[in-house]
Design a protein around this nucleic acid. Structure first.
Lengths: 237, 237
DNA sequence: TAATAACTGTGTCCGTCGGATACAGTGTAC
DNA sequence: GTACACTGTATCCGACGGACACAGTTATTA
């Protein structure tokens, strides 16, 4: 049943066995990983190449392969490092809802701090203890609410994907050379085409008049949690 | 105010001006784009290289650059083609909620049909008429509900990102060589570590007992729309 | 009709990427 | 002291996106 652990799995879950003979390694996995995280933070995931990382830590490109089987494993380790230890939610008072709200906000903050995490935490991938720990915390907050197991996992997935998407949204607005954000870009596109996109034109027009700020993260979180609360209260007699 | 349209913008929004002299082009932008979409559908976005597309349409790699400035524009055109014309929601009866629910389901279906769309419809990017049309339809469904403009756009963004994330989730479970899905992978990781992840262990255990199927898309959509409905009814006196 | 200008597809070349392999130096265990 | 395990390096490969020069083709113009 339990299949042979892949290289990535071993790197993520087991502590490295240090060699007993030969020259002392000049590097550590942690140093390499940290260099990768720093590089990705500053210049994006595309800038993370073996060359750049090797230069950052002061060795040749091929030296890195003494520590890592390949780039896939490097990205997995970077992801684990950037996720960080899952936050404890025991200090958050008030039951499942404020706990989950805070959890999603912290997750969002992590995705904003490391925008490339949104690209590496998607699809089939090796999962590390940190990432699993985040899920554990959210699931723990929902224990005893009466939700079914599948529903619990769905709620966590919905919240996580919302936090991720809003962080990507925020990152997209910030890193562009043009100072226009997405709504600004849409406005420019619609300008002169109000007949094709009447509802959008009217909405963007109203948006400009309304003013005020828009916290898309909290807005969506509140809607989702409202919906979850509705389900939970319907379940509890 | 309106800045000079980029190459991608011109390709997406303006009809191609055909040359008056010289040999007849053997290709069309549409043929190239369709080949790219087909290739991405079958082998993923990473398989979409200039070489492969050129081979598919029967020319040399460099011939493609007579039609496209570069790969960025190709991906933008592929995205537009794969998104397709936005569905009209007028036939959906019952007000904003069933309209939006159907809209999200159709968007989800598109993301499932073309899993790589999730990667190309993120971040700062040139937006084409099809993509804008999808947004238009969702915004139109929310007109007259009493929501503010910013709230309307937030609701649409929340629904869209949920549909996208669930499609990514579904795609990840399908394309892997291992027959294990994400919950199966989590179960294997937790096995023997129940003390570190007690809530997850209990939930996965309960999940196995509960049986039944899990429609994560509709579950999340229902929660979100419940939350939106709560807000709308609170707004209308 | 002939020349010109515009446009097409091709071949060659470049730098960068991830990675395989062979090799020389280094330190521990026997 | 010697053998072995281990390190970092240098070289090489195929594939990638793309720049550039070139030859062939076609509509316009003289």
């Amino acid at each position: 049943m339990s299949q042979a652990p892949s290289n990535a799995h071993r790197l993520l879950w087991e502590s490295p066995v240090l060699p007993r003979r030969g020259p002392k390694p000049t590097l550590t996995l942690t140093a390499i990983t940290d260099a990768g995280v720093a590089l990705a933070d500053e210049e994006g995931l595309a800038a993370v190449t073996m060359q750049r990382i090797a230069a950052a830590v002061g060795v040749t490109k091929m030296a890195l392969y003494r520590y890592l089987p390949g780039k896939v494993e490097l990205v997995a380790l970077m992801t684990e490092a950037a996720m960080g230890d899952a936050p404890g939610l025991d200090t958050v008072a008030g039951g499942w809802r404020p706990k989950l709200h805070e959890w999603a906000r912290l997750l969002f903050a992590g995705f904003v701090r490391h925008p490339w995490l949104a690209d590496t935490t998607v699809g089939a991938r090796p999962i590390g203890p940190h990432e699993l720990g985040w899920t554990e915390q959210a699931v723990a907050a929902l224990l005893g609410t009466g939700l079914r197991a599948a529903e619990t996992l769905d709620v966590v997935a919905t919240l996580a994907s919302h936090a991720k998407a809003m962080a990507q949204h925020a990152a997209a607005a910030g890193d562009d050379t043009a100072e226009e954000d997405l709504t600004g870009a849409m406005g420019a596109l619609i300008d002169g085409r109000e007949d094709r996109f009447p509802a959008l034109a009217a909405t963007l027009d109203a948006l400009a008049r309304e003013g005020g700020q828009d916290d898309a993260l909290d807005f969506g979180l509140t809607r989702i949690l409202d919906g979850v609360e509705l389900l939970i209260t319907a379940r509890t007699p």
